[in-house]
Simulated scan of single mutants.
Amino acid sequence: MASHPFKIEICVEGIDGLVAAQTAGADRVELCASLLEGGLTPSLGVVREALRVATIPFHVIIRPRGGDFLYSELEFATMLDDVKAMRELGVAGVVIGCLTADGRIDEARTKALVDAARPLKVTCHRAFDMTADYREALEALVRCGVDRVLTSGQRDTAIEGIDILRDTQARADGRIVIMACGALDANNIARVRQATGVDEMHFAALHTVKSAMYFRNPHVGMGGTAIEREYEITLTDVDAVRATIAAAKAAA
């Protein structure tokens, strides 16, 4: 069973997502940019505005690009700088993840990031789910002093990863917080909580709305997505967050 006070964290994109999550009753937010890429480091302007309006703690993801978690020396240097900037700004925590090429936690880099972050809380994100051996990875994170790990049980969804989530929670034995994620919603979150006994749970509850732009240039796009996607906005759904939190707490 859970060894720490149960909490719900909502993954959001930007300042409007943070406000929606706290309005819906979240305990904490993971603040990101570009959730289409799994979450990237938000700008300092976003973080400063978040500090101004937040009524709950938020943790900032430190991820310089999408793709894998094997970073160049220059990328890692930017991660260290971002961690130090977040510490100086006074956010509640940071979210990190570094792997070696053979699918292990990069302990040297992880420990360096933890040391740079203190006294902030440090979460390892789903880089954990991309490791070759979750048992070994868990012990590595404990050695590095990481406070919590976000995991779907090394599967696409928490439902598929229930067995590994349960085992990870048991192996953690209170030494590190286990935070479950992976397509959690009001229909399945209670089942995952009851089956795994995890300490915390994390989800996004996103919905897409059409852009308010009525002029749309059909001849040019801004990136690698379809032009139609550039006229859609991804938002945190307050009602879905509220309903999912209620379902999770009812499972206690």
Rank of each mutant, 00 (worst) to 15 (best):
I159Q: 15
A132N: 07
L120T: 14
R143L: 05
G103W: 06
E136Q: 15
A116N: 05
D129S: 15
T100R: 13
D156T: 12
A140L: 03
V114Q: 02
K121N: 12
I159N: 00
V142M: 03
D102W: 12
R143K: 04
I159E: 15
R126L: 15
R118I: 07
F128H: 14
Y134L: 09
A117C: 12
P119M: 06
R126F: 09
D129I: 12
C98V: 15
M130G: 00
V114N: 02
A140H: 01
K111N: 04
C124H: 13
R104A: 13
C144T: 00
V142H: 03
L113W: 05
G103S: 12
T151V: 11
L141G: 04
C98T: 14
T123R: 03
D156L: 14
I159D: 14
T131F: 01
L120E: 14
S152N: 11
L165H: 02
V146N: 04
L138F: 00
D147Y: 08
G161M: 11
L113E: 01
E139D: 13
A158D: 06
A158V: 13
L113C: 04
D163R: 12
A117L: 10
L150E: 10
V149Q: 08
T168R: 01
L150P: 02
G161W: 07
I159P: 07
R135H: 11
A140Y: 00
R143A: 03
V149M: 09
R155C: 15
D102Y: 09
L138G: 03
A112W: 10
R109P: 01
G161C: 07
D115Q: 12
A116G: 01
A101T: 15
V122C: 06
R135T: 14
A137N: 03
R155A: 14
L150I: 15
I164V: 14
V149S: 02
T123E: 03
R166F: 06
T151C: 07
Y134A: 09
L113P: 02
L165N: 04
D156F: 09
R148M: 03
R118H: 08
R148H: 02
Q154T: 08
A117H: 03
A140W: 00
K121P: 01
D167I: 09
D102R: 11
G153N: 08
T157V: 10
P119E: 02
E107H: 12
V122W: 00
T168G: 02
T157P: 02
R166H: 07
G103A: 11
T168K: 01
T123K: 00
T110D: 02
D115F: 03
D129F: 06
V149W: 01
Y134N: 07
M130D: 10
L113M: 08
V142T: 04
V142A: 02
C98N: 06
D106A: 12
E160L: 08
V114C: 09
D102S: 14
